[in-house]
């Protein structure tokens, strides 16, 4: 293992920003794995740390395939993480909306360019990501529909679901999208948490990446075969909205099966405690995403359901 600073930036009042990369093996650029790009992605940082720990052991046992190189970048924006911010603290820009970056541009464009310069040209790119809507997901692999995506490769992570998202204009500046444009097979791995650590889904994510790298001939590692994933188009998920605002009580969470007419959640009057709305499942299926916060705004998404899928 070789630890190096892949990008650094001097600050007027703080210690230098150092973005670290861990290289395992030597040779062909096989896989690049990136952890936290936003300051609240603690779970993503944790997953990466566990992955680096596992890869160190595998390398010590000669289990990195000869001629293959893996680069792991556990954290890009710890400057924000250290002060409790999600985005770049100076101007609140999102580094994950700055790719492929521009080395003569604004600060976060330069950071993105510096990271992308190291992260591109790998055969496989894996990012531990978080979503713009706060809530819980079933662990899954997500890909952008760019025309270069390969759902069959995503299946090799052995996670239960592969989601394909039709990119919107704002997605065109994400790492995942740009990796694909630069001919890297790009995957975003979503676990259950972001701000907090969830051990179970973190272990699941580490195993999934090790399984994938094994199947791609990058490492040698014996593991459970995992799932044969259901491939889902994001646009085909059924969104269930809240018709009221107030205190949110959830009865069904991610991964749980619901039937048409089931009460998924209820909304309480925040002053008097009465139930002012019951959120009813409009279809049968598996809950894929679920609102988690204790308060809910009218028209917020309570959950997204994979229709007509059963446990």
């Amino acid at each position: 293992m070789l630890k190096e600073t892949i990008y650094s930036l001097k600050a007027p009042y703080r210690d230098e920003l150092r973005i670290s990369g861990y290289r395992f093996g030597q040779g062909e650029k096989a896989a690049c794995i990136i952890g936290s790009i936003r300051g609240n992605e603690v779970q993503q940082l944790y997953v990466c740390s566990q992955l680096i720990k596992a890869l160190k052991e595998l390398e010590a046992h000669g289990s990195i395939v000869s001629g293959k190189e893996i680069l792991v970048i556990p954290s890009v924006n710890h400057y924000s993480m250290n002060i409790g911010k999600r985005f770049w603290a100076v101007d609140n820009t999102d580094i994950n909306r700055m790719f492929p970056g521009y080395d003569k541009g604004e600060t976060t464009q330069r950071i993105a360019a510096g990271v992308f310069e190291e992260a591109k040209e790998y055969s496989y790119g894996i990012q531990f990501a978080s979503f713009y809507m706060p809530g819980d997901f079933v662990p899954h692999v997500r890909m952008m529909e760019t025309g270069y995506q390969s759902a069959s490769l995503a299946n090799l992570f052995g996670l239960p679901y592969v989601v394909i998202r039709k990119p919107r204009p704002i997605d065109t500046t994400t790492l995942n999208y740009n990796w694909q444009l630069w001919e890297t097979n790009a995957f975003s791995v979503y676990t259950k948490e972001t701000d907090d650590i969830d051990e179970i889904s973190a272990k699941q994510a580490v195993s999934a990446v090790l399984r994938f790298l094994t199947r791609m001939g990058v490492i040698r590692y014996n593991s459970h075969s995992g799932y044969i994933a259901n491939v889902i188009l994001e646009d085909e998920l059924t969104s269930v909205h809240s018709d009221e605002a107030g205190i949110f009580h959830r009865f069904k969470g991610p991964g749980e099966e619901v039937h048409r007419g089931d009460v998924i959640a209820e909304v309480l009057d925040p002053y008097e405690g009465d139930v002012i709305s019951q959120i009813i499942a409009p279809t049968e299926g598996i809950i894929f995403f679920s609102h988690k916060k204790p308060l809910i705004t009218q028209r917020d998404i309570v959950c997204k359901i994979i229709r007509r899928l059963h446990e």
Binding site: A245, T297, Q298
Partner: peptide, 11 residues
């Protein structure tokens, strides 16, 4: 308008 969680609407 959209109702916010506690006794307010976004207008």
């Amino acid at each position: 308008s959209v109702k916010l969680p506690v006794d307010e609407s976004l207008l």
